[in-house]
Write a protein that binds this DNA or RNA. Structure first.
Length: 287
DNA sequence: GTACTTGTTGAACG
DNA sequence: TCGTTCAACAAGTA
């Protein structure tokens, strides 16, 4: 499930390949996966790719933008040549090809570029989407405007969090950092890993945290995300980069999905539920 | 066969 | 109006 680091990895990978390419044709196999007048995209070029939280924004020529959310199982995979997955490997990377032949039965949208290359949108659980907008419309789009600062923004400070906490005195710290209007781009994995790194229990009421603890937490979320960039993202579920390759971060989790395992501190990792989400923590070193 | 998982939205509630 | 809780979405995995 792509969170901020994974989406950023996809953004970089795609940007290195498809900037300047012209859309020659589009196959829409599942209507809800591509919302809007798809025929209006024909002939447009990809100008740039931005990321906001866990969303990607493709800016096309003539003031059109695509807003892409991969949700739980969405994938964007680029092939240099349609029907030839050897063309998927860029820069000599060995193919950890886990996606297999494309299109597959989970390929819902296919962008065919004028040079014969292809971009596949695959989504096993069909929660993800690509929406077509006028670039201008994005400024007033609720899903974008409601987002809080990202963990790497300089505005993401303990004071920023304290201000939010004062409005939400009952919220548990994990619920707050998972809330996209608080820290945009943080998902379940990096919330748990960040809290573990900071030695803070996900069950703590946010209001009880000191300024120092909040500072530690922010720096820890950055640290685990940085680590994920290094390892090419987490592929615990269905994440692959733009070339269909898995990341390695899941082999370096300290706490996520480790219920019953022994924590480096010697304690036993527990699973519980916070805000309706599976939550992993070590009661002996997270206070 | 059944429970569970996951991010986000939207509805219902106080 | 605001915060909080919870169902809904899909489909594979345990």
């Amino acid at each position: 499930m792509p969170e901020l680091p994974e989406v950023e990895i996809i953004r970089k990978g795609l940007a290195s390949q498809i900037i300047g390419k012209e859309i020659a044709g589009i196959d829409v196999n599942l209507k809800k996966s591509l919302q809007g007048p798809s025929e209006s995209l024909i002939g447009r070029k990809i100008i740039s790719i931005d990321r906001r939280a866990k969303m990607l924004i493709f800016n096309l020529s003539d003031g059109i933008s695509l807003l892409v959310h991969l949700k739980l199982t969405g994938q964007l995979v680029f092939d240099k040549k349609a029907g030839d997955k050897d063309g998927r490997v860029a820069g000599g990377h060995p193919s950890a090809d886990w996606v297999g032949d494309l299109p597959s039965k989970f390929t819902h949208v296919v962008f065919n570029f004028s040079d014969g290359s292809v971009l596949y949108f695959n989504d096993l659980r069909q929660f993800g989407y690509i929406k077509i907008y006028q670039t201008e419309e994005l400024k007033s789009l609720k899903v974008l405007n409601d987002l809080g600062y990202e963990p790497f923004d300089k505005e993401a400070t303990p004071e920023y969090l304290m201000k939010i906490i004062s409005r939400r005195p009952k919220a548990k710290i994990k619920q707050l950092i998972l809330d996209q209007s608080v820290l945009a781009g943080v998902g379940n994995i990096y919330a748990d890993e960040g809290l573990f790194c900071a030695g803070i229990s996900p069950l703590r009421t946010a209001k009880e945290l000191s300024r120092t603890e909040l500072e530690q937490l922010i720096s820890c979320i950055r640290k685990v995300m940085d680590k994920s960039f290094e390892f090419g993202g987490s592929s615990e579920n269905t994440f692959v980069n733009a070339f269909g390759e898995k990341g390695e971060m899941q082999n370096h989790f300290n706490i996520y999905r480790k219920a019953g395992k022994i924590c480096p501190c010697g304690g036993k990792v527990k699973r519980t539920v916070v805000g309706g989400r599976g939550t992993y923590y070590c009661p002996s070193c997270q206070k």
